[in-house]
Simulated scan of single mutants.
Amino acid sequence: MTTDEGRAVAPGLVHDAPGRRSPGALAGAVASEWTKLWSVRASWLSLLAGLVITGVFTYYYASIARINGHPVEAVGNAAASSAVVTQFAFVVLATVAVTSEYATGTVRASLLWVPRRHRVQAAKALVAAAVAFLGGALFAVAGTAVAWAAFDGRASFDAGTTLGQVLAVGAYQAFVAVLTVGVAFATRHPAGALSILAGLLWALPSVLLGLGGETLAAVNDLLPYGAGGHFMRVGGGAPYSTATGVLIVAAWTAAAHLAGLYVLRRRDA
Rank of each mutant, 00 (worst) to 15 (best):
A227L: 05
S156A: 15
F175Y: 01
D221P: 06
L200T: 12
S241K: 03
A217E: 10
L194E: 07
R154L: 11
A198I: 15
V219W: 00
G192T: 07
G199M: 09
L209F: 14
A193D: 00
A140S: 06
H189T: 13
G245H: 03
G236C: 09
L216N: 06
A184R: 06
T144P: 02
L209H: 10
T244Y: 01
Y172G: 07
P190V: 07
A171L: 15
V146A: 02
V146K: 03
G228S: 08
S195T: 12
A217T: 13
A150P: 00
T215F: 15
G228Q: 00
G229E: 00
A145C: 14
G160V: 14
T144L: 08
A155L: 08
A217H: 14
V219F: 05
A238V: 04
L211F: 04
R154N: 12
L223M: 12
A203Q: 09
T187I: 14
S241Y: 05
L163C: 11
F157N: 15
V176C: 10
F151N: 00
G164Y: 03
G210W: 08
T242R: 13
G199T: 13
A198Q: 01
T180K: 08
Y172A: 15
L208H: 02
G164C: 06
L204R: 05
G226V: 09
G226D: 02
Q173Y: 01
D158Q: 15
Q173L: 11
P205L: 04
G213M: 08
A193M: 12
G210P: 00
V169E: 03
A177F: 01
A177C: 07
A217V: 11
T244G: 05
R233T: 12
T242A: 13
A191V: 15
A191D: 08
A149M: 15
A155M: 02
S206W: 02
S206H: 10
T162S: 10
G228A: 07
L223A: 14
L204S: 11
A142E: 14
A171I: 09
V183Y: 01
L197Y: 01
D221G: 13
T162M: 07
T144F: 04
A150S: 13
S156T: 12
T215S: 12
Q165C: 08
I196R: 04
S241L: 07
Q173F: 01
W148I: 05
V176G: 06
W202C: 13
V146H: 01
V178P: 05
H189K: 09
L179V: 06
A186I: 05
G228N: 07
T161V: 15
G245E: 02
E214V: 12
A238Q: 06
I196H: 07
I196M: 12
V141Y: 03
T244H: 08
P205A: 09
L179H: 03
L201A: 07
L223Y: 10
Y225D: 13
R233M: 10
T215N: 13
L201E: 00
Q165Y: 07
V183R: 02
A238H: 06
V181H: 03
G226N: 02
E214R: 15
N220T: 11
A186D: 02
V207I: 13
L211H: 10
G245M: 03
A150D: 01
V181K: 05
Y240P: 07
F231H: 02
L204E: 01
S156K: 14
G213H: 02
T180I: 01
T215I: 12
E214W: 00
H230D: 03
G160T: 08
L201S: 07
A191S: 14
